[in-house]
């Protein structure tokens, strides 16, 4: 009886979570241009989306910003995590609460505050005749800013598990600090670094609010494009592209998840 109730409850939540996704996937095969009418099955949007310059450039911006911001925030997050480990308790708790600000604060506030600082910085630079263009650069900085805490969140626990004796053993055996770090520490923390990178990539890919406030006219990611299209009606190509992205991420997760189960062989110098 209890088991049956929990099964039913799980199914209910499952339907709640997946109904919108099913709707979007079905809409991507809808032969009619509006989502209000069903016009039969088609694959045409999956072809025509590649001809749509606007969608393709938004896709390019989205992916480039996701990769770059994930990469840079992972590097900064790794550096911060290593130094956090060596910090005294009081200083560490201050830095950790700084770290929590972008995660606990409202996205709209973070977005607005970044917009204000870019404007102020632009005014400052304009005294010397320079200009700040709201677009790729400002959005990238925004994404790195909200991504850093997530990378630290995933890297820190791995760093804590490290047995410092192995590192010291490497030094005793004549390895330089850098070599010991590369060959001993890096392989140990790699899972944390990778999942930090993936989480940052996901957060960036899906972000709308920060991008909305830090972008300029003429620059769009998929999310901001969808937001402006809502009133005149979303292009069906957008459903097709999102379905395709969803499917590829799912595939990657399945592959990555399977690959992670195998324990990597220890690499020798």
């Amino acid at each position: 009886m209890r088991k049956a109730i929990s099964r039913i409850y799980l199914a209910f939540i499952f339907i709640l979570l997946y109904a919108p996704i099913a709707v979007l996937i079905i809409l991507s095969f809808n032969n009619s241009r509006t989502r209000a009418k069903w016009g039969g099955w088609t694959l045409k949007w999956y072809l025509s989306m590649f001809q749509d310059q606007v969608i393709m450039s938004a896709l390019w911006n989205t992916l480039l910003i996701a990769v770059l911001s994930a990469l840079i925030s992972t590097i900064l997050g790794l550096m911060a995590s290593v130094s956090l480990l060596a910090m005294k308790h009081k200083k560490r708790s201050i830095v950790l609460s700084l770290l929590n600000i972008p995660m606990l604060n409202a996205e709209i506030v973070t977005g607005i505050s970044l917009m204000l600082i870019f404007i102020a910085f632009g005014q400052f630079l304009s005294h010397w005749g320079y200009m700040i263009e709201f677009g790729f650069g400002t959005v990238l900085i925004g994404h790195i800013t909200f991504n850093i805490p997530y990378t630290v969140l995933l890297i820190m626990p791995k760093l804590r598990q490290i047995n410092i004796s192995t590192y010291e053993a490497a030094l005793d055996l004549g390895a330089s600090r850098w070599l010991a770090f590369r060959k001993v520490i890096i392989p140990d923390i790699m899972p944390g670094v990778l999942s930090g990178f993936l989480l940052a990539f996901t957060m960036s890919l899906d972000d709308f609010v920060i991008t909305h406030f830090t972008k300029g006219p003429g620059f769009d990611t998929l999310s901001t494009k969808i937001y402006t299209e809502v009133r005149k009606g979303i292009k069906p190509e957008m459903y097709a592209l999102s379905t395709l992205l969803f499917a590829s991420v799912l595939l990657l997760i399945l592959l990555f998840g399977r690959g992670r189960k195998k324990k990597p062989a220890p690499e020798l110098v």
Partner: peptide, 9 residues
């Protein structure tokens, strides 16, 4: 579900 664009969802 979080892998599908949140605005579209």
């Amino acid at each position: 579900p979080m892998w599908m664009n949140s605005l579209l969802r």
